[in-house]
């Protein structure tokens, strides 16, 4: 083995090889040059796009620098937090949590039938198409837009926030579940159907056990998302801690707002840890079995 490799190194390259290598090298250089042009074109396009959007968004680095100067005393105004308002914050905090929880539960319950109707191996084609269109619409409509429409119906309060969050939960969970159902192997469904099971029995014994872990894991993820989105929706008019935060910021009561900010951060951190803990346990198969 060693001898052959030595022989190989000692071999002189023939004239033909050299010509071939030269030709290859030229070709490579040419392709590099072509790519350089393409790269330059892409870079110019990107720079133009950035410049255009910076102009449109009034990006002003001077105001940014001034903002930093202004921001430092601003941070000072947030401290010390006004701890006397802590007790009055607990109720809105609970409202945000309950809103997110109820929206998640409602969304999980409703996404199951939606997902069954939207999967190609269970539902008739027209129903599947209609359901997929509905889900696509749900996903295209940001929850804030839904909230604004719902406020027009229900007025300000938790109910429009709850409905908006559960609708957008349906959009996300039903899509994930329907994709999961479509990936179930057809043999599995056939073997249950072959024992003489009705369609509902097939769903109960072949489909539900397979998608339940995914439903709960994604539901927990959605709960985490709903808490953050709920804070945002609250500021627009769905109540809760987000509303308190925005009103106290607008009233320049920064020390009170600081308490709301700290409570929100603690809440989000805690929910993240808890849902992470349960999600890993569900996905590893410990729970739900």
């Amino acid at each position: 083995m060693e001898a052959t490799s030595k022989e190989f190194i000692q071999q002189e390259p023939s004239v033909l090889d050299k010509k071939f290598l030269d030709w290859k090298f030229l070709e490579w250089k040419r392709s590099i040059a072509g790519q350089r042009w393409k790269q330059a074109a892409i870079a110019t396009l990107l720079a133009l796009l950035i410049a255009f959007s910076a102009w449109r968004c009034n990006v002003d680095l001077r105001s940014f620098v001034l903002g930093i100067d202004k921001g430092i005393p601003l941070v000072g105004m947030f401290f010390p937090p006004d701890l006397s308002s802590l007790t009055s914050m607990l109720q809105p905090l609970a409202v945000t949590v309950v809103m997110a929880m109820a929206a998640t539960i409602l969304g999980m319950c409703l996404s199951l039938p939606c997902a069954l109707a939207a999967s190609s191996n269970l539902a008739p084609p027209f129903l599947r198409l209609a359901m997929r269109a509905f889900i696509a619409l749900e996903r295209g409509l940001p929850e804030i837009v839904q909230l604004l429409l719902l406020i027009a119906i229900f007025g300000l309060g938790v109910v429009p926030g709850l409905v908006a969050l559960s609708f957008s939960s349906i959009g996300m969970l039903a899509k994930l579940l329907a994709d999961g159902i479509e990936e179930i192997e057809p043999q599995m469904l056939e073997s249950v159907a072959g024992t003489g099971a009705t369609r509902s029995q097939v769903i109960r014994y072949a489909v539900i056990p397979q998608i339940l872990p995914s439903l709960f894991a994604n539901g927990l993820f959605r709960f985490e998302f709903n808490i953050r989105a709920g804070v945002m929706l609250g500021a627009v008019g769905a109540g809760g801690i987000g509303y308190v935060m925005r009103t106290s910021m607008n009233a320049m009561d920064y020390q009170k707002a600081c308490v709301a900010v700290i409570l929100t951060l603690i809440l989000v951190f805690t929910i993240e840890r808890v849902s992470d803990f349960f999600r890993t346990r569900i996905l590893s198969g410990g729970l739900l079995r």
Binding site: S63, F64, G67, I68, K70, G71, L74, R228, V231, M232, A235, G242, M245, R246, M249, A257, V261, T264, L265, V268, F269, E272
Partner: peptide, 15 residues
Amino acid sequence: SIPQLIVILVLLIAV
């Protein structure tokens, strides 16, 4: 994990 609401409210005052 910082909610965007907090960031935008602070930045609206700053910039």
